[in-house]
Simulated scan of single mutants.
Amino acid sequence: MAPDADPDTTIEATQLTPGIHRVETITDGKIHGYHVLEGATGPILVDPGYVDAPTTVYEPFLVDLGWSLADVSLAVVTHSDADHFGGNHELREHSPGVTIAGHVADAPLMESVDRILEERYSQFADEHDLTYEQKVYDWLTGMMGPDEPVDLRLRGGESIRVQDRQLRVLHTPGHTKGHLALYDPEYDLVIGGDAFFGRGLYDAEGEYLQPPPYYLYPEYENTIQLVASLEPDQLSFTHYDVLTGDEIDDFVAESLDFVAEIETLALEIVEDLGPVTLEEAIEAVVDRRGSFGLDADLAFPLTAHYGELVERGDLETVERDGRVAWTRP
């Protein structure tokens, strides 16, 4: 099942800088702000979006600018999540000559529904016996069209021409191994998918949807600091309003504070409970900090920090009833 656009919400388009546009809608109560670039040989999409977003979200905007989906020359997929690459197949159906590009580390997951369901959306099944409810898998699968190849593997450091200037491709791992963002140095703008998350994702009414789902640490913290070092005037991520000025500073600070808090909390839980499984750690976080909505996604940051703590020698892994657990050495 594809996401449902909220009935009272229209698609809103905003020009962020010359040649860079944000096309925003609300689906399943969640902000989706995608981006269109005016490239040298036609429009460039930053994330084709969920399964039918090319026709339901992008096409009306492109028509207003005198283009069509057939004119799209390049699609840069920021990372391997269903609501960012799920529209790859539909885009190719309407623009057979489009080049679909993604980071080399994420491209294999974007190309295969089976693989992303197994390796990303079920990554805690084997060691921790944790999976989503079936309705979540149905929702994720419904956002993805048929398998579609990724034509161009990126690594970060490339440039993309927009009008008379070049944007820089940034490798911003943490949420995924191959997450990408784009930086416009002339106008101090950073656009991307889900590079970092403050204290979590919220719906359009400000209610928690999920905690920050990063699973690579310290890469996630490094990404936050990289973007902060650019001192952008505007920050446009998919599931948040466009941020400017002090809003960016606050969002960066919230993101870093959450990282520090969850690492401290992860250690405290091991100290208090002894050998602790991932399921027990999630329950303990919710008991101490309250619900984040989809609390199962606390598995991502918790395993990121427990893995780093094991690497540093502060913790070690043991087995309890066929599951991985963490304890002091």
Score class of each variant (00 low, 15 high):
22 R>Q: 15
297 D>G: 04
68 S>M: 02
206 G>V: 11
250 D>Q: 14
270 V>T: 07
151 D>Y: 00
65 L>N: 03
66 G>R: 15
304 A>T: 05
275 P>W: 03
277 T>Y: 13
118 E>N: 03
132 Y>F: 15
231 E>W: 00
134 Q>H: 08
254 E>P: 04
211 P>S: 15
65 L>F: 00
123 Q>T: 12
244 T>W: 00
188 D>N: 07
328 R>H: 03
54 P>V: 04
270 V>Y: 02
226 L>I: 09
141 T>C: 06
31 I>E: 03
169 V>N: 04
16 L>K: 06
288 R>G: 04
193 G>I: 11
108 P>R: 05
48 P>C: 11
39 G>C: 09
151 D>Q: 05
156 G>I: 10
256 L>G: 05
165 R>L: 13
276 V>C: 06
127 E>W: 01
149 P>I: 07
227 V>G: 05
36 V>P: 03
8 D>E: 09
313 G>Y: 05
17 T>E: 12
94 H>L: 03
323 R>I: 02
202 Y>M: 10
198 G>H: 02
299 A>H: 05
101 A>M: 05
109 L>N: 05
231 E>T: 14
58 Y>M: 15
270 V>E: 06
319 E>Y: 09
319 E>G: 11
294 L>T: 06
210 Q>A: 14
269 I>T: 03
92 R>K: 12
250 D>T: 11
204 A>R: 15
234 Q>R: 02
123 Q>E: 13
319 E>T: 15
6 D>Q: 13
193 G>V: 08
245 G>A: 02
62 L>S: 08
272 D>C: 00
45 L>Y: 03
144 M>D: 09
250 D>H: 12
306 Y>D: 12
101 A>R: 09
95 S>D: 05
45 L>Q: 08
132 Y>D: 10
304 A>Q: 07
327 T>M: 02
141 T>G: 06
19 G>M: 11
107 A>I: 05
25 T>H: 02
215 Y>D: 13
236 S>R: 08
254 E>Q: 14
139 W>Y: 14
303 T>E: 08
194 D>C: 04
65 L>A: 10
89 H>A: 15
315 L>F: 08
32 H>Q: 10
239 H>E: 09
27 T>Q: 11
289 R>D: 14
316 E>A: 14
107 A>S: 12
325 A>R: 06
268 E>T: 07
231 E>D: 14
124 F>I: 00
99 T>E: 11
137 Y>D: 12
121 Y>I: 03
173 P>E: 07
298 L>K: 06
327 T>Q: 13
84 H>N: 10
277 T>I: 11
181 A>D: 02
116 I>D: 07
40 A>E: 15
101 A>H: 11
137 Y>A: 11
82 A>K: 01
13 A>C: 08
270 V>S: 04
275 P>I: 07
230 L>V: 06
53 A>V: 06
227 V>R: 02
284 A>F: 06
108 P>T: 05
42 G>P: 08
153 R>W: 12
306 Y>F: 14
269 I>Q: 07
74 L>P: 11
269 I>C: 00
150 V>M: 13
225 Q>H: 07
24 E>S: 15
172 T>S: 06
16 L>C: 08
232 P>D: 06
221 E>G: 15
70 A>M: 08
